[in-house]
Design a protein around this nucleic acid. Structure first.
Lengths: 149, 149
DNA sequence: TTAATTTATTTGTAAATTGCAAGTTTATAA
DNA sequence: TTATAAACTTGCAATTTACAAATAAATTAA
């Protein structure tokens, strides 16, 4: 197999730029990391701090502080879990939800623009390919998840 | 178009993990950023500091310091450009080349493992799709390049 | 039931990363 | 030849990071 890595490296870099340019909404200027956190909280169902940190592969102590700053920005809410009082459940505030949604819409708009250069068939193929790839990565145990030592 | 962003977000996150777990070679422990820099210096033809910083979308002052630390690690070399004495040409040292190559091989090995789950046709399709996507992103002027204001 | 262990989270601290402002040096334009 | 611009570096100061250690609650073992 030739230089598959190059393809990935360039693609993810480009997508990274997209994300980077995309992170302010509702008068709030977010860092890339913060935008990823909002995304992940939104995506998961009542996640704990630990769960989101794991999903993003961030050190828990770092993550704890990141959450603190997002709470200060009034984008994230921390609720004690009644089931287990060690745990805090994370959720987006109304404002956080607005910001996350806005970013999401912008990202999708950018992506639409990219895909608009393709015809229906090409678009379908590319999207199906990415889905497929994600599944393959999920199945692989050697890679693609944060290191758990 | 449905939630294309999700596909991308997950894919790039997974690839990010891959990169993250992949950054030590030849007894040197590199950060993700450092590994990206080696990659980009290797890829470009006698790039200047500015060029690599631009390609990676990093602030030039930050980048200047990152190069300094890679020089200290004896992975990167800075040569004055005879054509324009303001400019420094970056290149990898022998050791830097070794590290970059090792990381590259590891990444490709991981990717091979992922692709080994697919049959020949699927593999071809996925790879062609990513190439295609890269071209589309390159053509788009709205996105996918670092902000130049 | 108590003691020991594990899990979730936070804080102390110190190092690394970042970027703006300002500076140096060389090239180019007026 | 003076002014402007471009490539790069340094001085900060703020932010981000992660390891070690602490707290508090749950679980498990004795």
């Amino acid at each position: 197999m030739e230089a598959v890595r190059d393809l990935f490296q360039i693609m993810t870099r480009r997508f990274g730029f997209l994300n980077k340019n995309c992170c302010s909404a509702g008068g709030v200027e977010l860092s890339l990391v913060q935008s990823h956190i909002l995304y992940e909280i939104d995506r998961q169902h009542k996640p704990s701090i630990q769960q989101v940190a794991d999903a993003l592969g961030t050190d828990i102590t770092t993550f704890s502080r990141q959450i603190q700053s997002l709470i200060k920005l009034n984008l994230v809410k921390k609720t004690p879990d009644p089931e287990d009082r060690r745990v805090y459940i994370l959720s987006l505030t109304t404002e956080g939800m607005y910001v996350a949604t806005t970013i999401d819409e912008q990202m999708n708009a950018y992506l639409s623009e990219i895909f608009s250069q393709m015809n229906e068939f090409e678009r379908e193929t590319v999207i199906r390919s990415i889905k497929f790839l994600n599944e393959a990565m999920a199945k692989s145990n050697q890679c693609c998840t944060p290191i758990v030592e």
